[in-house]
Write a protein that binds this DNA or RNA. Structure first.
Lengths: 231, 231
DNA sequence: CAACTTCTTAACAATTTCTTTATGCCCGTT
DNA sequence: AACGGGCATAAAGAAATTGTTAAGAAGTTG
């Protein structure tokens, strides 16, 4: 469920590629790498990365072509990483739509700081995690719940309960597992409090609580929420 | 209509200041310059520049303080121009909210290219310069708030609070996150001061503070402002 | 310095949430 | 048809949380 931020690295030189990949992995990014401009463009289209690191010196095509083609249809942040430290090159890259230009060799932490800055700009920094089924939508990032597009208010315990189910959508959670998770180990066997809270949740999200569409009871076992309809 | 783009240069060294000023004038920018951090902050508030060039080595205060104070209430693009080429310094500046970091000496055209890049970000950039919902409008750029078209006065803390929420419209901000952001880390757990300020804000912007239309309480968690109705 | 605004603290009021208790329903079994 | 197990619902008091007000402290401005 917790999606990593995805960075596409377009770089042909093996050692440089491995170095950067290690660096990014250390900071928890998910990395895809491409050895050629063509491959890079294709991956950018199919994988929709949150950020692109682009080396201008590629074997198959001019780095500027990659930059311009990418900018032709995407606003993804692009940071140029290049061995070339010439004024003209930098100006051209930045004016072609690059968001930053880092010269090799670079300080490792400077690169990651510049990546954070670029992500901050794009605001696509954190891919929001959403549960969606029928007319119900839970936005974990915002801590909000919408039913038919209208925001619904849940209390703290109700929210914890619903999100616990949603994080395990489609799977049955036993009464004790739920109780332990929300009220702590001493609350096990106290099913009544769970029933009351479930009833309150259903009253808020179900059209007819007696015939629920979202939260189902597995008699004698526990509760289960409808499967997530997201990819 | 198309007024000149206004750049604030905060730099104490005379020769460097004159050099940059010439450079910017050549590209048609309007320039204001400040010799000290204090003057810079005051000019940033009164003149609302489109971009700030900040030298970290100032006579009266630490450059980072200027950066942080500025970021406390403004999203204006800030480019650091510094003689220091140390990794740690760069990382700290970028993570404190600077948008770019240029090391002296620099290529003149690289600087202007980076300025163009930063300006491009601020225009298309993600955080919209205006928050609008129902009859409330916050103009971050002008630092003004209008309710039913009438300007409303908020104190400094109230404004910071409201804009912090508006920048995260639709998302719940926890009490501690808000306290940390506005009163600093030592203020955590001191919710009372937050409640009082919220009450004051609501008195100014809500018709009936007991049934708020803009600022909602998530009991046990934090506050949330109504979603932005902009595109 | 005086007038004014803003900030902080504290006491109290109002509201929301939590838990328990009581009661009813459904369903399968006797 | 009566019974009991398992679950859902309603309601009410207790507990926790939040809102409001006011007064003095601190800071600003002329």
């Amino acid at each position: 469920m917790s999606a990593k931020i995805h960075i596409l690295l377009i770089e042909d030189e093996k050692s440089s590629c491995a170095y950067i990949a290690t660096l990014l992995a250390r900071d928890g990014y998910q990395i895809t790498s491409a050895k050629t401009g063509k491959e890079g463009l294709s991956l950018a289209a199919s994988r929709c990365p949150n950020l692109v690191l682009l080396d201008l010196g590629l074997p198959d095509m001019d780095g500027f072509q990659v930059l311009e083609q990418l900018r032709g249809w995407s606003h993804v942040p692009i940071i140029i990483v290049s061995a070339c430290n010439e004024e003209q090159e930098k100006v051209k890259a930045l004016d072609s739509g690059a968001d930053d230009y880092v010269t090799k060799p670079f300080y490792p932490n400077e690169l990651t700081a510049r990546i954070r800055t670029a992500l901050r700009h794009s605001r696509s920094g954190a891919p929001s995690q959403i549960y969606r089924a029928l007319n119900l939508e839970i936005n974990f990032d915002r801590r909000s719940i919408h039913l038919n597009g209208v925001q619904i208010h849940l209390t703290q315990i109700e929210y914890q309960l619903l999100t616990l189910l949603a994080e395990n959508a489609g799977r049955v959670l036993t009464y004790n597992a739920i109780l332990r998770h929300i009220w702590g180990p001493y609350a096990e066997e106290n099913n009544q409090i769970l029933r009351v809270n479930m009833a309150n949740i259903r009253r808020k999200i179900e059209k007819n609580p007696a015939q629920p569409q979202y939260v189902f009871t597995e008699v004698g076992v526990g509760y289960r929420i409808r499967e997530n309809e997201n990819g």
